[in-house]
């Protein structure tokens, strides 16, 4: 099997360094408020990282293209699943006839009504005592 491609050591090290660097980048940008652009950027960086892993660590770049096809197929079917499901979940009540169906599930589950308030350690606090006092204790 000596004819197999052997990736040079340097390549692996560069890829790993880039992955670590990009991980830092996503954490850093997540603290900047870009509105809904945050998620786009986060997913973009994640996809760059994922491509580096797939093409270099998983050797897709040098492999038979059938293997790449399998991988891309999985992403395509995932895309189909999300997109078509969202055609429903994103457009519920689109005729506007029944305002109830617009937000079908946003009702709070009943069990929350029975839960006592807690502090940040999850210990119940007496509702009538001073909550702000409890709060200050821990910060």
């Amino acid at each position: 099997m000596s004819e197999h491609h052997i990736t040079p050591l340097k390549t692996y090290l560069i890829i790993a360094a880039s992955l670590l660097f990009l991980s830092g980048v996503t954490v850093w940008v997540s603290y900047i408020d870009l509105g809904s652009f945050n998620i786009v950027l986060a997913m973009f960086v994640a996809t760059v990282k994922a491509s580096l892993v797939a093409f270099f660590f998983m050797h897709l770049l040098w492999d038979d293209k059938k293997n790449l096809t399998m991988f891309l197929m999985s992403l395509m079917f995932f895309g189909i699943f999300v997109t078509i499901t969202m055609l429903d979940t994103g457009f519920r009540g689109d005729l506007g006839l029944n305002p109830e169906t617009k937000d079908p599930i946003n009702k709070r589950a009943a069990f929350y009504d029975t839960l006592p308030l807690t502090d940040t350690h999850g210990h119940p606090v007496d509702e009538h005592s001073d909550e702000h006092h409890e709060d200050k204790d821990h910060h």
């Binding site: 079917f77 189909i80 078509i84 055609l87 429903d88 979940t89 994103g90 457009f91 519920r92 009540g93 689109d94 005729l95 169906t101 079908p104």
Partner: peptide, 22 residues
Amino acid sequence: GFLVWGHHMFTSGQSVFSQIVF
């Protein structure tokens, strides 16, 4: 076959938009 599953859900309360697409 992967694009049509919602035709089993025409009376389940999915959005009208997705009904048309399916």
